[in-house]
């Protein structure tokens, strides 16, 4: 198995060139009553098309802020985020988000939630096709049976499946997930990780995903971005995860390199950038 550890910070300084998605010297400063508060300071990073990127870092360091500048809900205070050579200024369906609280409309069924998304983004598509896409994506996450259930009748795991189906049904170029599986039980979480990988394999969209779980990141990601603590957080390290795909959880966990990487991430989070609770 050809996996290898990258030396720290090796990737940080690669020239962004004409990468698919680039953070160019991005900083984010919030005005607060006690003066300006710098959340992110000078982020430079390039993401390749079709890449699966995970972001990890202590709570409050600015992970959501970072991805919100890709989705367009937030704009950089200086620098820019560039997709296809164009600076991102506002939200759009090419960068779909799986929201932290699912954000499904409870007065609709699972089916209608997905259909509404397709209908909003591609109103001119024939209705038969829109219905077909809706069914296809609900089937991908195993929700064919529950398609007509109202959102409130679904379990947390099923809601998250609907949210993922909705996000992927509009065929985004970039899929953004903010701690998508944090609230789920361990078994549902592993199921959803596998489903997400399967769908990602067929669609090959670029994925940016925030997580708290190192094992999750090692199973899913091509690269793991580790952020330093705020204020003025930076990218501390980017770890290459080269396990071949399709991945098998048991297999990669038997690889000795898995534990090297795991320890390296743990060391980063809990020794070098241990959370300072007194702040």
């Amino acid at each position: 198995m050809a996996t290898m550890l990258q030396p720290p910070a090796a990737d940080l300084l690669t020239p962004p060139g004409d990468a698919f998605l680039r953070f160019e010297n991005v900083s984010k400063v919030y005005p607060t009553p006690t003066g300006p508060y710098t959340v992110l300071d000078g982020i430079d990073m390039a993401v390749n098309q079709g890449e699966f990127m995970c972001v990890i870092g202590h709570s409050g360091c600015g992970k959501s802020t970072l991805l919100n500048m890709v989705s367009g809900f937030s704009t950089p205070s200086s620098g820019q985020v560039v997709l296809h050579g164009n600076a991102i200024t506002k939200p759009g369906p090419d960068r779909m988000v799986v929201f932290q609280g699912y954000a499904l409309l409870p007065w609709f069924s699972a089916y209608d939630n997905v259909y509404l998304a397709i209908d909003s983004v591609k109103p001119d598509l024939p209705a038969v096709e829109k219905k077909e896409i809706t069914r296809e994506h609900l089937a991908m996450v195993g929700l064919t049976e529950a398609a007509d259930k109202k959102i409130n009748q679904l379990s947390g795991g099923m809601k998250q499946r609907v949210a993922i189906a909705r996000a992927l049904a509009i065929r985004p170029e970039v899929l953004i997930l903010d701690e998508p599986f944090g609230a789920l039980d361990a078994i549902t979480k592993e199921e959803l990780q596998e489903e997400l990988l399967t769908i990602w394999n067929t669609q090959k969209c670029t994925v940016l995903m925030i997580t708290h779980d190192i094992d999750e990141a090692l199973f899913l990601a091509d690269r793991l971005v580790m952020m330093t603590n705020g204020p003025a957080a930076k990218i501390g390290e980017i770890m290459e995860i080269n396990f071949p795909r399709p991945r098998n959880r048991e297999e990669i966990m038997e690889d000795p390199i898995y534990y090297d990487m795991r320890n390296q991430a743990l060391d980063f989070l809990y020794s070098r950038f241990a959370h300072d609770d007194t702040e």
Partner: peptide, 11 residues
């Protein structure tokens, strides 16, 4: 959250 969904989908 609902407003954000509408924004991303450009409803």
């Amino acid at each position: 959250d609902y407003r954000n969904v509408a924004l991303v989908l450009q409803m």
